[in-house]
Amino acid sequence: MTRRTDTHPVLDRPGVGAPFFSAWEVGTPERQRRTVDAIADTWERRPWPTDGLSGYFVYAAEDGSGLLHYAQWADEQSYEAFVKTRRQERNDAIDTAVPGIERVWIGRYRRYRSLTRLTSRTVGDGSRAVRVPGCVVIVDIEFDGPDPARQRAWVDAVEEALAAEPTPHPGGISAHFHLGTGGTRVLNYAEWETAQDHIDALAAPGDGIGSTSPLWERVQNWPGLRSSTVKRYEYALGLVPD
């Protein structure tokens, strides 16, 4: 069966050989809420589709316009079998509940590298509390042509720039870099304690995110870099096998 979970996914969990990301546009915050409810209702009324899917997670865009989907597939064959037998019927049920959803894109990826800072922090009584991400930031990078070596080199350069920060913003929790199988895209799934932490990190002067350090300038002006978009999301729904 299918059950709902409030636990955020573990991006580097073993067995996830084919992570998929996709985006839907729904238009308004009210339609955004209705679509999340429709997804939950559709999936919870049906058996978990396959052992090849370990988790399906949905995130609400900060501006209320759309949703991000993240699915943890064991391999692409499991996904293709789901498409042939189960996906359309579920999409039809969701579209009946909320007509007019625009399915903007879907991407096939492989996780390349994960960078994690402290996963807990000290609270008032001196004990340690797990740091729960209140904001997920998706950085979507596109290059002007397929080049797997360039994908990896760009991520390596980002890691170098992050490692050189003398005072990294304390709100950052992790960054999980995924390489598009087509060779042109990189997607960074970054966890932050709050959206404001990410906003402050972008606005802060000096070294680090948003700065003009040579290492960050190199990242931002990489040869062949066509576009770079940053979008903040909030965890909305998690579905896992029961």
Rank of each mutant, 00 (worst) to 15 (best):
T7C: 04
L11A: 11
R13C: 08
G15W: 09
A18F: 15
F20R: 12
S22E: 10
A23H: 11
E25R: 10
V26N: 05
G27N: 10
R34A: 15
R34S: 12
A40P: 03
P49D: 11
T50W: 05
D51H: 11
Y56K: 01
Y56M: 02
V58Q: 04
A61R: 09
E62R: 09
W73M: 08
W73K: 07
A74V: 12
Q77A: 15
E80F: 15
A81Q: 14
R87S: 14
N91M: 14
I94K: 01
V98K: 06
I101T: 03
R103T: 10
I106R: 15
R108A: 13
Y109T: 12
R111N: 06
R113K: 14
R117M: 04
S120Y: 02
G124D: 14
R131Q: 12
V132I: 13
P133V: 05
P133S: 13
V136Y: 04
I141F: 04
G145Q: 07
P148M: 06
P148D: 13
A153L: 03
V155S: 06
D156W: 01
E159P: 00
E160H: 12
A164F: 07
P168K: 10
P170C: 09
S174P: 05
L179Q: 08
L179R: 03
W192Q: 07
H198E: 12
I199C: 03
A204D: 01
G208P: 01
T212H: 11
V219T: 05
V219H: 04
Q220I: 00
W222Y: 13
R232Q: 10
L237I: 04
